[in-house]
């Protein structure tokens, strides 16, 4: 279970620091998929970065634990080894590092941190091939440098590929639907749904209800001004789509 209690955080340094999260509380039990929706500037991406330990964000109060273990005191790589995975809104280009090399290095680093043996080359290639097939990824693409020259849709599919390879215990999907056409969206959702399991939790951050037609959430939270202001079932997403954020926000105040 991912448990966030009363989390406050700022972005930026010193005098330029801006408070973004203001006492955010949220629990995602293991095995459930929750969605977070909210207007621009609500703090959605900040939440994903604070949970994964990006530099430039400072936690000023509250806690976040995964299966009872504190996350906020750990380095990003240690959080990853504990099973935290972020599907980036804007995946980063890594020139000179082929996808397969990158993912295998990451997988073995995580395994090492957990005291597990490394994956063998044949085992890795077999797994990679199977997942590439599910995501309709050209195997040649996996030999190219990470995200370099990839289209927006390819980058998002590559995020899901990494997620399926690394098999995290908790996944945060930050606006995975942005920049995807309907076919790509369906493929990506298939990959994500394949990872749904009683052992795994998921937080789907999105602007639009559209993605949630494909990845059906157990709960929907509305994030505004750095806090969860409303929680409901999947029907809440439909209401937001129909009425806009203004109506729901006004009601919550």
């Amino acid at each position: 279970m991912l448990k966030i209690e009363n989390l406050s955080a700022t972005v930026g340094e010193g005098e330029g620091a801006t408070a973004i999260l203001h006492g955010l509380s949220l629990s995602v039990p293991t095995g459930e998929v929750h969605a977070i929706m909210g207007p621009n500037g609500a703090g959605k991406s900040t939440l994903s970065y604070v949970l994964t330990g990006r530099e430039g964000y400072t936690v000023t109060g509250g806690t976040a634990t995964l299966n009872g273990e504190d996350l906020l005191s750990l380095d990003p790589e240690a959080r990853a080894a504990k099973g935290m995975f972020l599907s980036f809104q804007y995946p980063v280009e890594i020139p000179g590092v082929p996808v397969m090399t990158f993912v295998r290095t990451a997988m073995n680093a995580q395994r090492k941190a957990r005291g597990e043996p490394e994956i063998s080359a044949p085992e890795f290639i077999k797994k990679s091939r199977e997942i590439a097939k599910v995501l309709s990824l050209d195997p040649e693409m996996l030999k190219r440098p990470v995200n370099v020259g990839f289209s927006g849709g390819e980058k998002k599919r590559l995020e899901i590929y990494q997620m399926m390879m690394l098999e995290p215990r908790f996944m945060v999907l930050d606006e995975t639907d942005s920049g995807l056409d309907i076919d790509a969206l369906r493929t990506v959702a298939e990959g994500v749904n394949a990872l749904r399991s009683p052992e795994r939790g998921m937080l789907v951050i999105t602007h639009y209800q559209r993605l949630l037609d494909y990845i059906k959430p157990d709960k929907v939270h509305v994030l505004a001004k750095g806090r969860i202001i409303k929680t409901g079932g999947p029907e809440l997403a439909h209401r937001l789509e129909a009425e806009g954020y203004d109506g729901v926000l006004a009601e919550a105040v």
Binding site: E55, P76, I94, A106, Q110, A113
Partner: peptide, 9 residues
């Protein structure tokens, strides 16, 4: 950060 998020120290 991208590399570290994937678990690379």
């Amino acid at each position: 950060f991208y590399l570290r998020q994937r678990g690379i120290p």
